[in-house]
């Protein structure tokens, strides 16, 4: 078996780890699990992790993906870190509103606006 290709594009910008997704649809459970594991590794490698997850280009998201985001949020909080979400498509944002997760997460219109809120 070869190494599994990353499902994320990651870069560090002014001390913030900025994450984007390779996939347009974040639905498949195996992919979601891989995404969760990759982001968890990024969190583990930092003292007070600062994470921006940018959803640019993401068209579909399942409840399993929401679950993974909640787990990520819990891990970031446990390490006194900060998590921001940005560039969420309006139809996907509605899913956050229905599940009231828009109140749990710090969601910003654009990555630049989100980056400006890290302390």
């Amino acid at each position: 078996m070869g190494s599994v290709a990353s499902r994320l594009n990651v870069r560090v910008q002014n001390g913030v780890t900025r994450i984007e997704f390779v996939d347009r649809n974040i639905l498949d459970e195996t992919n979601i699990q891989q995404i969760g594991e990759e982001i968890s590794r990024l969190i583990e490698g930092q003292v007070n992790p600062k994470l921006l997850i940018c959803f640019k280009g993401v068209e579909h998201l399942s409840s399993a993906a929401l679950g993974t985001l909640i787990t990520i949020n819990n891990r970031v909080k446990a390490k006194d870190g900060q998590l921001r979400l940005s560039d969420i498509d309006p139809q996907i944002y509605e899913v956050f509103v229905i599940t009231k997760l828009n109140k749990l997460f710090h969601i910003h219109e654009t990555a630049d606006k989100a980056l400006a809120t890290f302390t």
Partner: peptide
């Protein structure tokens, strides 16, 4: 209910809610 304050940080239980919505 996953939207209850005590359940909001639990990662599962949102699928049925979304189907109903």
């Amino acid at each position: 209910d996953p939207t209850d304050e005590e359940n909001i940080e639990i990662p599962s239980g949102r699928g049925i809610m979304l189907m109903r919505a």
